[in-house]
């Protein structure tokens, strides 16, 4: 492979990244032990019995909704690998939580939009378009079809900002890129580390 464009990037420690994944804290050994004992109890721990009652509720169903928010989008794309370093986009601060905006439609039948601004590690990064493509493929695969994505270069972080922005959001060019087997295999390589 040719020399990396940015051979010495700044790296953020994984543990310092905002995430919702694995935030469910591990139970202390103490709680585990007590739980193990309590599991032997015959008293029912599940208050939801009895079943099949005819209770009616207003809603279509009785579940509360967790709306798709910026954190969720960040978690989806943060673990994408950088094409030239063995690091993730979040570790390199290419994607940052504050640079993600989710605009929901009024209901699930209307379009929603996600705007992501990416920060290239250096201003002449030629891989910005590839990174953008990777993010787009990941989101298209992971979010419902009602979402539209706009991926832009963060203002003032790239020499040819407008050009890259155009390329990133040009449907035809994205579609053409996805037809290119070699390009696609690089993208898949980037996505293979997704958590």
């Amino acid at each position: 492979m040719s020399d990396p464009i940015n051979a010495n990037p700044t790296i953020i420690d994984v543990s310092a990244l905002p995430t919702r994944l694995s935030n469910t804290e591990e139970k202390s050994s103490r709680q585990q032990l007590l739980d193990r004992i309590l599991a032997l109890s015959l008293s029912s721990s599940d208050p939801e019995l009895p079943l099949l009652t005819d209770e009616s509720s207003e809603d279509e169903d009785d579940e509360l909704e967790d709306t798709i928010d910026a954190q969720e989008v960040f978690d989806l794309i943060s673990s994408i690998s950088d094409p030239e370093h063995p690091l993730t986009l979040a570790q390199l601060a290419v994607v940052n939580l504050p640079d993600i905006t989710v605009t929901h439609g009024n209901n699930k039948n209307e379009l929603s939009e996600i705007l992501i601004k990416i920060t290239p590690t250096i201003t002449h990064c030629s891989l910005a378009t590839l990174i953008g493509l990777g993010i787009r493929v990941r989101l298209e695969r992971s979010l419902p079809p009602r979402f539209r994505f706009r991926i832009l270069i963060k203002e003032g972080t790239h020499q040819s900002e407008n050009q890259v922005n155009k390329q990133l959001n040009d449907k035809e060019r994205v579609a053409a890129a996805c037809e290119n087997d070699q390009l696609l295999s690089v993208v898949l390589q980037m996505l293979s580390t997704c958590k």
Partner: peptide, 13 residues
Amino acid sequence: TKIVINKKVVNKE
């Protein structure tokens, strides 16, 4: 897909 019976979800989370 959700199975809803009597306005209650059968296949819960």
